[in-house]
Amino acid sequence: MNAPAAEVSDDALLVLYANGDSRAAAELTARLGSRVFGVAMRVMGIRAEAEDVTQEAMLRLWKMAPEWRPGEAQVSTWLYRVAMNLCIDRKRRARGGYVDLDVVPEPPDPARSAAEALQEGARQDALQAALMQLPERQRQAVVLRHLEELSNPEIAGIMDISVEAVESLTARGKRALAAALAGRREELGYNDG
């Protein structure tokens, strides 16, 4: 692999991996593994679950590599789709279809000052808690749109629904989040001014 890694597409990296290039796996993991983990964290709400989903999704990517046909789809789209389905499967298996409202919040970033960290940490915890109250598909659509900044057509491909359905899910999800957070404005340090 002579070209700088940044110039090599995910597609090409996956083909290199299938052909025995050991560095391609590390590059793909750095590019895609962390993104899948971030989405899984937001959708599952529990670190251990997100880690399992990420490892399983990446394992399926490795196993699928020899059959991958470059140019037909984006590797990231395929991987997000696998990860989202794994999230849904785990939620259904674990809770019989009910969404768990008691999520374990992420610890605040220790690099910030204590006061800032507490407030921002509390706000991010509130965001995560509000996300976990959304129906499963709404939560996925909101996370992919507003945290991963994917386009609506790409989200439609990942979730196997129409673009209009994505727009509807994200709009309803965002309104529900805003409503959930509005009741906690004072607690979260927002001023009315």
Partner: peptide, 28 residues
């Protein structure tokens, strides 16, 4: 809040990174 969350994506834990790469080697 979304903007802050986007600016601080969770890093892939080292242990998970190692497990993913070990899977990759086995599959290869």
């Amino acid at each position: 809040l979304f903007a802050v969350a986007r600016s601080e994506p969770p890093a892939l834990p080292d242990r998970l990174n190692a497990a993913i790469l070990a899977d990759a080697v086995r599959a290869q």
